[in-house]
Design a protein around this nucleic acid. Structure first.
Lengths: 191, 191
DNA sequence: GTAGGCGATGTCAGTCTCTGACATCAAGAC
DNA sequence: GTCTTGATGTCAGAGACTGACATCGCCTAC
């Protein structure tokens, strides 16, 4: 057998979320997380720069998928359409993970430091979206509006999805959010 | 003479900005800041919840002025106009403080933790603007768009003002930013 | 098939942020 | 003049994070 159990990082993430759920973020020490994962405090900091980062490791992946999806969208597609389909693609990553997402979101909501970090991560995603759009030729104004709007809708969809108890995928919630925006835009645009 | 020199909080803020400028945020300890201010580390934490907060104490004041200005705007005024004039009012608070703002912004830009905190503060201002608009009857959608747009323009204006070397007030930069937005909107709106 | 390089982890010691409990002291209230 | 109060100081300690160095199994080169 291997010298070390595999997936140290994943074990740390699981242990951390469990402990945060059980007793809260600031009542949990890194030593405890590491111990539950069968590792050392020092090793925790080799995998995560920060105590908070243990809940945000996945965002790098989101980032990559998002940027890739925008880059791979058909050439002529309008910015908001590109953003919508990129976000739907991201949504599929969350299949079968609703209960995990729920627990994670509950932990974040309960702590100001974690909320702060989440805000930063979302801003980072918006910036990445913006840059990816501009890289495919979208002009500055439309790119930033589409990026910000997209992230705002993503957040709204995510919240509804977490709260809901149906069988729907996150992607469907995202699609619905964009549809609603589209309807609003049509209804309000001066003709 | 008084037992303690007056304005402990201000002295801490000054000492902190000086030290951050001289040697950087994370090469500066709180003990050093306190010592330069003629105080104790423990006292620092009575004035600021956080090491970072020493650079953001002013944002509570901005918050109040902003909310007050929105509440005091003429009843019929459209949301974006209200936001613009509230932000111009805030801009006047910065008169004669450009070099301070410049040093502060340089320190923030040089450190990820400080950038994170600034992002949070700006988001808080946007939220407050939104709430203040809704309190005077603005509908949800327009309120949040006006708030977010306003903060975005404020940030842009602030950056230009910091960078510029003219005699103009921050308020003038804010006015100009809104004028530019207005022109863009007219040019793009379908007739 | 063995020597050594390499990568993941452990150990240890230390710095710094942040907190709680309690002491001190001047200024104003009465 | 005593008493209360608010701002500060002192002390001790927990916990986040870092740097330096040790360990140990796997893999490659020879």
């Amino acid at each position: 057998m291997a010298r070390w159990e595999p997936n140290a990082r994943g074990r740390l993430e699981d242990a951390a979320l469990d402990l945060f759920t059980e007793r809260g973020y600031d009542k949990t020490t890194i030593a405890e997380i590491a111990q539950r994962a069968g590792l050392t405090e020092r090793t925790f900091f080799r995998h995560f720069t920060d105590k908070r980062e243990v809940l945000f490791g996945g965002s790098a992946h989101l980032h990559d998928v998002l940027v890739g999806a925008v880059a791979g969208a058909p050439a002529g597609a309008p910015p908001l359409t590109v953003v919508a389909s990129a976000l739907e693609q991201v949504g599929t990553l969350f299949e079968e993970r609703r209960s995990f997402a729920r627990r994670r979101q509950a932990a974040i909501k309960a702590n100001a430091e974690l909320l702060e970090r989440e805000l930063v991560k979302l801003a980072g995603l918006a910036e990445a979206l913006d840059a990816a759009l501009r890289a495919r030729g979208t002009a500055e104004g439309p790119a930033s509006v589409a990026a910000e709007t997209g992230i705002a809708l993503f957040r709204a969809a995510f919240t509804s999805w977490i709260a809901a108890d149906d069988a729907a995928d996150l992607s469907e919630y995202i699609r619905a959010a964009f549809a609603r925006l589209h309807a609003l835009a049509l209804a309000s645009s001066p003709k």
